[in-house]
């Protein structure tokens, strides 16, 4: 037993150096005043209305895109259920999902500017063919609502990647037992499939929420002005060199983000212990 414990050492050291240490350094700055001493003044800035509004927008955006992404992604997983795991369909969808799930930042901004930008393909088509002006009330693509579609674009594939293994681990014997007892496909899904999958589904949903909440690159390249969501506020706090003491505000904002994420993570961890009931 003690010999096997040494096997845990390399991973522990790695996580300590590249996860624990940087996190402590980053969050620690939130408690530093301008003179470098300990203070709670910087953290108190989290109560500012502008900061609170940004947190509200971030949570709203993340929840909306996580729910839509999880439902659509789970549907795609279900559609793939009968496909051969090593067949062309599955490997194509797997590869496409992996690429698109991380299709963030600059490329996603380019794609949606070309689609629903002022001169975008869909914008022009709707205008010329149907007479619909999607920007009749002003251009919303570069503001908060404009982030919804791009975010969904990377949420759905992430759901496919994370939820597919759970769906694939449904045991055929359960379907046989269901059929033997006179059950239909409907009773199989309602009584067996969905209850067993529910914790995995909700776990993936929280993963999607976290993914959107901490996403920075897409918003950073798409919205050049303003800071409607928290990551963008951190960026402006980090990069604005004109206002003294702003880098410590970044630490406070970081702390606020981590608090929200901790709540999400506790929910995730509860769900996982529920999912574990069906294992072994």
């Amino acid at each position: 037993m003690p010999a096997a414990a040494f096997g845990l050492l390399p991973f522990a050291v790695y996580v300590l150096l590249f996860l624990a240490l940087p996190t402590l350094i980053a969050v620690g700055t939130g408690f530093l005043g301008n003179d470098g001493g300990f203070t709670l003044d910087t953290v108190a800035a989290l109560g500012d209305p502008v900061v609170l509004a940004a947190f509200g927008s971030s949570i709203w955006l993340s929840a909306l895109t996580a729910i839509i992404g999880a439902v659509v992604g789970a549907l795609v997983c279900y559609a793939l259920l009968g496909a051969r795991p090593d067949g062309a369909l599955r490997s194509t969808v797997d590869s496409l999902s992996s690429v698109i799930a991380q299709f963030g930042g600059a490329m996603l901004a380019f794609a949606f500017t070309a689609t629903i930008g002022i001169q975008g393909m869909v914008t022009l088509l709707l205008q010329e063919r149907l007479g619909i002006d999607i920007f009749a009330d002003g251009v919303w693509l570069y503001e908060l609502p404009g982030l919804v579609l791009p975010y969904i674009y990377f949420q759905v594939p992430l759901m496919i990647i994370t939820f597919m293994p759970a769906l694939a681990s449904l045991k055929p014997t359960w379907a046989e037992a269901n059929a033997t007892l006179g059950g239909t496909a409907r009773t199989y899904w309602l009584r067996i499939g969905l209850p067993v999958l529910a914790p995995s589904f909700l776990g993936s949903l929280l993963l999607l929420f976290a993914n959107a909440f901490s996403s920075y690159a897409t918003a950073a390249t798409l919205t050049s002005q303003g800071a409607q969501i928290v990551p963008l506020q951190i960026r402006s706090a980090l990069t604005s060199e004109t206002m003294l003491g702003r880098e410590n505000l970044a630490g406070a904002l970081a702390l606020g983000m981590i608090l929200v994420m901790t709540v999400v993570m506790i929910g995730y961890s509860r769900l996982q212990s529920r999912a574990a009931r069906w294992q072994r």
Binding site: L207, F213, L238, M257, I258, M261, M265
Partner: peptide, 23 residues
């Protein structure tokens, strides 16, 4: 292990990078 592995998701890249720079 699970909490440890899921932890990075609660630490956005933009937060992590501030602490990564000195490391």
């Amino acid at each position: 292990l699970e909490i440890l592995c899921i932890l990075p998701i609660s630490i956005p890249a933009i937060v992590l990078v501030v602490g990564l720079a000195p490391v």
